[in-house]
Every structure is written in structure tokens, then in C-alpha cells.
């Protein structure tokens, strides 16, 4: 990865604890839920999220002054993910709690946080081991109206205003995509090799008090959350329809007069009306000419 400008970045990473898939798993027939075949569930940081974190840390290393904050929507058990983030060197961590389960809720809850503060880059794992919905990142970007690239396998170049990445396509093909920042990327687990975190750092992190933000999402009739602070999406930016504009070279008085007249030509300084006098035939002739001239008849 090449970092073009060494301006500081503000990076957010979204993390989640998942069941450790290295232990035997079983699928519960009734609900389709995945369960560990173990007396106590063993959890671990979702691999793709770990890559997202790793990338963020490397970016910070290459551009001094940058900040990395890690977030997780979870109950208190989930704070292990944040401890890991802090141990890997994240500057700050915050846990978000709220009602509801599933990708839309997670994304909506994360969005409440990112509505309050803008980050240059939001990094998510591209999917989780447990549900594999691959929805949280894309939903979050949509709610925040940010550009996004999903399924990133390599970061080529990064500058303050844009990022150049490779996206994994089918059958090993790759696509080179450049995206403006601020924006959101979701990374594949294999995209960035992980570094080890020392046990001492992890212990230190576990002593940190991680702040919790509690958010309630208004729910709509279909059972899905309403996107935070945004009942319906912002209408697309309409194209400007040209309307009459007086030329800036005209005098101010003429410009105002034209606007007052709703776009008509400025009035001559003489009275516009005139009185026609004479016999009936003459007057009607003049009237006809007037109407004809102004294309009324």
C-alpha cells in the first residue's frame, strides 16, 4: 500500500465477536442457527474485521497523527472485540447497545454514531463467520449516504481525498476501483495479513473502561428499524431549470425593475399608456393596429 499524502486520517473500524469456527459447529434443524458443539461458546474476533482493523492500523502507521476508533454493536460479552482492537493499538473504543437483532439494526445503530461525527474512512469486515449476510457495511454506507467499495482484497493507494483498491470478483478476477473519501470499504478476511497482539497489551486493554452508548431505534410497521434520523431518503438533487436572469451588465435599477415586472423588459421612462383621440373610425383603426402590433389579434 502506498500512502500519497501523509495527512492524518480519521478512521473508524467496526468489529464483531463471532463463534470460533475452528471448533466443531452444528446447525440447529428448527431455526437454522449455527451452534458450537462445545459446553461453553468460544468466541473470536471475526476474521474479516480483523483485516479491517489491521489495514486501519497500517494506514495510521504511515500517516502520523491519524486516529483509529473501533466500534461494536453488542452486549457486554461483545466487548472482547474492542479489547482486541485496543490491544492492537486503536486510540479509542466504543460499544453501542440497542434493541433489535440482525444486520439492519446493527447498521442503523452504527449510523446513529456516525451521524454525529464524520470519519474519513469507515472500515468493516466484508462478512461475518456466523451469518455471512455481508449486509452491515453496505447498509451503513447507504444510511450515511457515503460511497462504498465492498469485498476489497488489496489496498493499492490511499490519499486524503480518495482510495484506490482492488475488489475480488468471481473466479479470482479483480477489479481496480477508485473511491472518493469520506467513504466506506468492506475488506475480505484474506486482504491484509494479521500481526500478532501481545498478551500483555491484551491484558492492559482489558483494564480499560469501554464507554457504552445506548440508542433506541424507532421501529416501523414492517418490523425493521427506521433508519436513524432519516425517515425517508433524501430526494435526488434536482437539475437547475434555467429561468430569466437579467444581465449583470444592466444597471441595478433596470435589473430590479425587470425582476419586479416578472422578467419583462424595463419600462421606458415615458408613460407606457397613450390616449388616442379622434373620430370613431380613426380610434378603432389605431386600436386595431395596437392590438395587431402586440400580437393580441
Amino acid at each position: 500500500m502506498k500512502v500519497l499524502h501523509t495527512t492524518p486520517f480519521k478512521i473508524a473500524v467496526c468489529l464483531k465477536e463471532v463463534l470460533d469456527a475452528r471448533l466443531p459447529l452444528k446447525v440447529e434443524a428448527k431455526t437454522g442457527a449455527i451452534q458450537q458443539d462445545a459446553p461453553e461458546p468460544v468466541v473470536t474476533l471475526n476474521p474479516a474485521d480483523r483485516s479491517a482493523l489491521e489495514f486501519a492500523m497500517q494506514l495510521r502507521e504511515q500517516s502520523p497523527g491519524s486516529r483509529v476508533e473501533v466500534f461494536s454493536v453488542s452486549d457486554v460479552a461483545g466487548q472482547a472485540a474492542l479489547w482486541y482492537g485496543l490491544a492492537r493499538g486503536a486510540d479509542d473504543a466504543e460499544r453501542i447497545e440497542g434493541s433489535g437483532k440482525g444486520a439492519p439494526y446493527t447498521a442503523a445503530l452504527l449510523a446513529t454514531r456516525f451521524h454525529k461525527e464524520t470519519f474519513d474512512l469507515i472500515c468493516c469486515g466484508d462478512e461475518t463467520l456466523d451469518n455471512s449476510s455481508a449486509l452491515v457495511g453496505p447498509l451503513l454506507a447507504e444510511i450515511l449516504d457515503l460511497p462504498q467499495v465492498t469485498g476489497v482484497v488489496r489496498i493499492v493507494e490511499c490519499s486524503k481525498s480518495s482510495i484506490l483498491v482492488e475488489r475480488g470478483l468471481e473466479r479470482g478476477s479483480r477489479e481496480l476501483v477508485e473511491m472518493d473519501l469520506p467513504g466506506l470499504i468492506t475488506l475480505k478476511a484474506e486482504s491484509v495479513p494479521w500481526r500478532y497482539v501481545s498478551y500483555q497489551k491484551l491484558e492492559e486493554a482489558q483494564l480499560r473502561n469501554i464507554p457504552v452508548r445506548r440508542e433506541t431505534l424507532p421501529t416501523s410497521s414492517n418490523g425493521l428499524p427506521k433508519w436513524p434520523e432519516q425517515a425517508t431518503p433524501t430526494a435526488p438533487r434536482a437539475r437547475v431549470k434555467k429561468s430569466f436572469t437579467p444581465d449583470s451588465k444592466m444597471s441595478p435599477a433596470d435589473r430590479v425593475r425587470m425582476i419586479m415586472a416578472g422578467g419583462a423588459a424595463p419600462q421606458e421612462s415615458k408613460s407606457k399608456s397613450s390616449v388616442v383621440e379622434g373620430d370613431a373610425e380613426y380610434v378603432s383603426e389605431q386600436l386595431y393596429r395596437f392590438l395587431k402590433h402586440h400580437e393580441f389579434v
Binding site: 437547475v240 431549470k241 429561468s243 430569466f244 436572469t245 441595478p252 430590479v256 425582476i259 419586479m260
Partner: peptide
């Protein structure tokens, strides 16, 4: 005096009388 009067256009002006100005800025 005339420019000040235009700032809060009275009934002497048509409705939405400065939409061309906001339109051009918006471009």
C-alpha cells in the same frame, strides 16, 4: 434604499422573485 427594499421583497415583486439567483448559485 432600492436594494434594501429588495431584500425583503414586498407585494410589488412577483412570487419567488429571486429563484433565478439561488438557481445560478446552486449551479
Amino acid at each position: 434604499l432600492p436594494a434594501e427594499a429588495a431584500c425583503v421583497p414586498s407585494m410589488n415583486f412577483p412570487l419567488a422573485c429571486f429563484k433565478h439567483l439561488s438557481g445560478r448559485i446552486r449551479e
